[in-house]
Design a binder for these strands. Structure first.
Lengths: 198, 198
DNA sequence: TTACCGACCCCCTTTTTACGGGATTGCCTG
DNA sequence: CAGGCAATCCCGTAAAAAGGGGGTCGGTAA
């Protein structure tokens, strides 16, 4: 559906030629061996592999291709990762024809496109993040175990360290996240994407 | 893009006529006042309101229209809600032309369509879920406050009830979720989608 | 080389949670 | 009308966590 949508949005543009499409990373790479477009629209959610990795790989193999990230998600982490892996822009799937065409034109000229919405998301995310929280190896382990409801005693046994040590890490986590207590810690760690819920 | 994709997928089907499309709930309802299709493809993620609610409303107002849920997400909760609000099927945005057409034909005949993938998701979710967790008004409130790191004392003050009462709800939450402690509770509540991280 | 930092350990106090019992009210439904 | 259930309150005790303080040791970066 999305491919069909793009095709129809670009059909009448005289200076844009759609030379092909692929429904997964494998066939995309196979296609690129024969022909390279000026601009490549790359979905972040691919069936066979991660679009962000694929972006990096394509940029390495074919530095001449400009890549536009394509996703339903106006999510800071995605946009950020995509851009830092060499994308020339980020287009949402609900973009208008005008936006899409503008993005392609800018990308093919080596410039960067970013829709207003997307830029805004990035910006507010940046504001909120302010201080990246850096955790040591042990702190991460402890946090992960706290998430699963382990008590300090259990963690000490699990990791073969003293309960006092576990307690120290716990305190350190609370202070790094500026959390009031365990529940708050879990929430903040999730917001900062240090941990995740599967 | 998606609308364009659907249009092009249905273009050559002789027995399917696309009589219109809308990009939000408001214009969809406005359209329906004048004309009603046999089958309506309804996206779950709409800019102005929730697709699931809209499904319910349309089914009430126009019981003659069969609705097919449309989403990128192969997620049990969505599918479930959509179906229990009267949808005749659930189509993923990466569906093939064949699947889409089959779904429309079945829906217009009053039958239910469900792609294999979707059915599978529902099934496994059902397995995992086993017991839906139902919370009372107060329990939800307390859970929400716990998430933000409030202590029992603070919650009691906030809600104007006794700390003992708060404690009772807390116990009840732990037992309903079979959680070991607060951290575990937060995790399980997130998994069950009772709370969310914004 | 000094100074910082992460990983490790210890002790003490207070607060908060966990968990085991109760109980009452009022509403809704079979 | 009885029974269920949500909402409210109470009382314990024990365990955990929060919040202070202190320390050693080794690596590494200024």
């Amino acid at each position: 559906m999305v491919v069909e949508g793009i095709r129809s949005l670009l059909m009448n543009e005289k200076d844009i030629e759609l030379i092909g499409s692929a429904s997964n990373a494998g066939s995309c790479l196979a296609f690129l061996k024969n022909r390279q477009p000026d601009v490549l629209l790359l979905d972040i959610n691919l069936p066979d592999r991660n679009g962000i990795d694929l972006c990096k790989e394509i940029r390495l193999k074919y530095p001449v291709i400009f890549i536009l990230g394509l996703s339903t998600f106006n999510q800071a982490s995605y946009i950020h990762e995509m851009m830092s892996n060499g994308a020339s822009g980020y287009v949402l799937k609900n973009a208008t024809q005008k936006e899409l065409i503008e993005a392609i034109h800018l990308a093919s000229a080596g410039k960067t496109y970013m829709a207003f919405e997307v830029a805004k998301t990035l910006h507010t995310a940046e504001q909120q993040k302010q201080s990246d929280i850096i955790l040591g190896r042990r702190e991460k382990e402890i946090l992960e175990l706290i998430k699963y409801g382990f008590t300090n005693n259990e963690m000490a046994a699990e990791l073969g360290i003293s309960i006092n040590t576990v307690d120290t890490y716990r305190k350190s986590l609370l202070s790094k996240f500026k959390a009031k207590n365990t529940a708050d810690l879990i929430r903040l760690a999730l917001i900062h994407k240090i941990i995740s819920i599967e």
